[in-house]
Write a protein that binds this DNA or RNA. Sequence first.
DNA 1: TCGATTCGTCGAATCGGTTCGACAACGCGG
DNA 2: CCGCGTTGTCGAACCGATTCGACGAATCGA
Lengths: 336, 336
Amino acid sequence: MNIGEIARRAGVSRSTVSYAISGKRTVSEATRRRIQHVIDELDYRPNANARALKEGRTRTIGLVIPPASRRLTDMQLDFVAAVVDAAAHADLDVLLSPSGGDHDRSFERVVTGRRVDGVILMEIRLEDARVGRLQQAGLPFVGIGRTSHPDGMWWVDIDYTALIAKCVNHLADLGHRHVALINRSAELVAAGYGPAHRALAGFKEAIRRRGITGVDYCCADDSAAGEACLQQILREHPEVTAAATINEAALPGIQRALESAGLTVPGDFSVTGVAASHWAENFRPQLTAADVPALDMGAHAVSLLTECISDPDAAPKHLLLTPPISLRGSTGPARR
Amino acid sequence: MNIGEIARRAGVSRSTVSYAISGKRTVSEATRRRIQHVIDELDYRPNANARALKEGRTRTIGLVIPPASRRLTDMQLDFVAAVVDAAAHADLDVLLSPSGGDHDRSFERVVTGRRVDGVILMEIRLEDARVGRLQQAGLPFVGIGRTSHPDGMWWVDIDYTALIAKCVNHLADLGHRHVALINRSAELVAAGYGPAHRALAGFKEAIRRRGITGVDYCCADDSAAGEACLQQILREHPEVTAAATINEAALPGIQRALESAGLTVPGDFSVTGVAASHWAENFRPQLTAADVPALDMGAHAVSLLTECISDPDAAPKHLLLTPPISLRGSTGPARR
DNA sequence: TCGATTCGTCGAATCGGTTCGACAACGCGG
DNA sequence: CCGCGTTGTCGAACCGATTCGACGAATCGA
């Protein structure tokens, strides 16, 4: 079932079979048909490894995801799905590599094994050794997120700074004078996770601009932590009348804490932030929030990657998305 | 940066370098060290495609997931994560292929391109053309789930029949005489999705055994559908005092419908079923449910796959899991 | 009718590894 | 000192494709 077998049965040379398949040289209609017939009969498909070896490219992209042990957020999952889908449409295969630490075998294999033509790197931290590793290896890659100095790299990111600022402005417009930010987990912040840092920066800046007061809390990515976190906020800062969050997994807990404190939304307390649409829609009333366009991001990342694979010396491009905030029911005028 | 370059710099032949790396023949300590030194210096790693070509195996497994367009359930996601993790531990790479229809290019590439040594096939339907395709291609594979005649194949599955029967028995023991099954979506049932069919079979059988009455409903995989579904049940069958479900995404909606109907859990209405732990824990009170051991399943699937790759003629093995039901707070005696 | 194109096909080289058979150097027992 | 087994290394074949240069046959213009 290799190309030689096809050639033998069709009574031609191996190169003729190759040209008949690729169309890179003219082959007479008669032999083309004869070859195609044998191919169909034997259900032949060229060996991808042999082809990759000779051509020097694999038609495969690597997708480096956070380690499986840490539960992926819904946004990240949407993103993975979008990348896989977009890649499939471009006839690219996707090699998955779970990688968290800066040195693990799976990542090394992807980087140095010449198994992929390029890489999409998720969950980039402000300082990320993997970026350097990829650059050093000369492997084209697109980051989801960006380091603190992203000038030399290709990336797609969401402007958390602007989004959280928008949320704060929205709350301030509604008369809230004391607001809270419910951030991602302390570990992620300590690890230099970009969205957490940038959201915090946007929060502080917006607070300052609007002359209101703000408190910020880290919160693990689960509903129990969200519940505890909001309870803590209510206890330590009873003046707070609204919260913004980028921690979607905390939302059910936030909801429960508000309910058990006897606070109605949005009458007594407003909630807003950034969340995948299905979390926003599961909140009651539905959450006024920026919908992360994970599907678009995935598609964009793939198309940027194909671009920088085909022209590695091109000037790096990037895409900073600021999705609009959908006004649903969870924000309202501050209680007096 | 190929093996010839290493050989040249170390002053040995290419084969010696290969043997020094693989250890398949003895190499003197002195040359081994010299070669290793050059390798470290140049950060050399053998080309995975060339190796795969010669060795006839790729050290890569394919993971065929439902198409990205359809949102994966949390259980499926846990499962993907588990497979990726287990594969990484076994130094295997994972090639992802989204495939739903029986004929798409991505799946065909995986099956016929000799890019993978074996495949893990998710979301198998009772009649699944992909199973036949894989068997015909002679590619080792392990199914997550099983067809209606799974004798010739390797698989790992959850015994939904037994689980739902257990749930019904539990409810019957608590005195419930009228129970409902909230199944997955009608489309999945129509497509012959195994868990949906087997859960229904288990439900009907258990109902009959215990001499109680049961109604079953299909429900799309989202909370809005769950809410609508439970409302419909309450309206059409007000005698029902308990529900079992395998539709975790419907749980928040079920909760909301119960709340807005003024029913308390478990005082007025009991809920149980099969759900990933985080859905069960987000229910209030927490859901009495079978926790799907997705992580174990993933690990088992990978280890079965490596086994059937190394010995394709072995008698097929399989694993039918019946996880225990964790008693939490969402079930109680039937209301009078 | 002859030389120049064009067309279709072939053989051989190549990609970067692995692996088999051969063989020289060496140590050892008799 | 000879024959033998062991050890370390090498050269060459091979995996399955792609691709380049060459070449015979058909076609064309002059």
